[in-house]
Design a binder for these strands. Sequence first.
RNA 1: GGCCUCGUAGUUCAAUGGAUAGAAUAGUAGUUUCCUAAACUGUAGAUCCAAGUUCGAUUCUUGGCGAGGCUACCA
Length: 594
Amino acid sequence: MNIQNILDKEVKNAVEETYGVKLEKLEFQPTRKDFEGDITLVTFAMLKQIKTNPVQLGQTIGNYLVANVEEVERFNVVQGFLNIVLSDPFYLNAFTEISSSENFGRVKSGENAEAIMVEYSSPNTNKPLHLGHIRNNLLGYSVAEILKASGKEVYKTQIINDRGIHICKSMLAWERFGNGETPESTELKGDKLVGNYYVKFDKVYKEQVSQLVDEGKTEEEAKIEAPIIKEAQQMLLDWEAGKPEVIELWNKMNQWVYNGFEKTYKALGVDFDKNYYESDTYLLGKDVVAQGLENGVFYKKEDGSVWIDLTDEGLDEKIVLRSDGTSVYITQDIGTAIQRVKDFDINGMVYTVGNEQDYHFKVLFLILKKLGFEWANNLFHLSYGMVDLPSGKMKSREGTVVDADELMEQMTVTARTISEELGKLEDYNQEEKEELYRIIGLGALKYYILKVDPKKRILFNPEESVDFQGNTGPFIQYTYARIQSIIRKAEFELDLNFEEIKTYQLHEKEKELIKQVQMYPETIQQAAENHSPALIANYTYDLVKAFNSFYQNVTILGTKDETEKKFRVTLSKGVGDIIESAFGLLGIGVPERM
RNA sequence: GGCCUCGUAGUUCAAUGGAUAGAAUAGUAGUUUCCUAAACUGUAGAUCCAAGUUCGAUUCUUGGCGAGGCUACCA
């Protein structure tokens, strides 16, 4: 039973004994820094049921707690706030338990744990990954890890958009202008090579359009009549018909792209339990629509197209099958969702997709509910804001995208520059140094992106790049490295037990630290509920701030008192462990030195 | 037009109905005979506007203003 539960119970007892009133729910919060106290009871809300003034009420409850709860040392009342001071032994005991527990804060998924699938990344195979994908990947990966840590069973997946007109454009341009180039012959990553031909297609297409306009066509006519677009459309038809040469080319170029993606994913540190391919799933969902048509969930229009009417829910009518009987985007999403539940026996899904598709997912979830799937109530669209540049939106055709690989490389270079200036690692060999620069550079980038609430759009300025000082990844990594340095120097067993420290007098900074440490488990649960890595990032920052203040104000290894030394080193280690664990949830590594 | 997000220090982010709105950065003033100064300690600076609900509103409601997105038989 934790302290808040004890207080909750005792406050209710106090009120019932004194005023004869039964309270339902109490509101506790951490005491603000400017007041003395550890935990605060907000008493305003009780005044509706109890006829007295807030100060009187606070005094009464406070006195009762001091008399009846061992852990409560003293209290003070400010307006409607009862600030409760907890005793040192309470904190010492709590910390002893924490320091001896394995994987503190994380909950193991039990047998009846909820199983969730998290979808993220989901790229097109006609161009390389960019900054927008980085946000998507980091969010998806981190939310998956957080859900795991909160006690759920989690599967990570992506759906690869490997078919469609966009792929044909790259294929056609390569066939036409490629001269047999390959990733090997050009020493380009496969996704970059294919992306180049996508750009090439667009260039030629634009030339053809403007030529047709010169010849007197309207812009719209020209866009439809340009020979190269017609060829691309023909290629798509050939692909759907299974024409061998087209399929072969498609396989070859997609494989190039996958090899390229794999490198990017590896560098970024994300992974997947299973990949779904649109070429396998794009026909799924039609049977479901047929069934739904019988059940009256959908209806057919005169031209044969199938629709669902969502106007009662405040949405529009939405098409689910074309008049020629082929599926649309949402049809395959319906099918894929059902397929996944079959494949993995999951009871929920998280879709990491940009907020431009808010409407799509609203509709998708509603349709699945109407079709009567129980798990449809447990679907979540992890919707995030776009990453914009100072010049506006990133556009691959205009060459304003920030390439994922290049960005990661840049971050590593910046980390190297800073590290070399500081010159603390002369005894590291080249390989160790490079590994460290990568950890720091990526740490800066990942933290920069994840600390922001997913819903908000991010303005990314490549000129100013990402900070390495202040509220940043490297700041937290640096603190971790400091702690490791202390532990290396301590050279004794950190097997703390309560008996040897129970009369220890806590320094104010130590108490602050323990309070912060105690909040970790709850932070994980909150982050999981809200699907928000930002909560983990901000928590970690607060923890680290508290540690640095402690570190600067209190001597750890320099103290003569052995108990004191042991306690402080153990406390430092506890903080270090949480940093490592929390950063693990964000997909960020921590260095032994830096 | 309709619908959905978002408007907080110069800038980048916090605060999910609670106390005097927190940080970082940029500015400014300091701290290395001492455990890693990528740190620490001061200082100055902000809730888009207007009504409403509430003991209490950055947070909830309504109406403006501003930014972005969606509104395809594309995905």
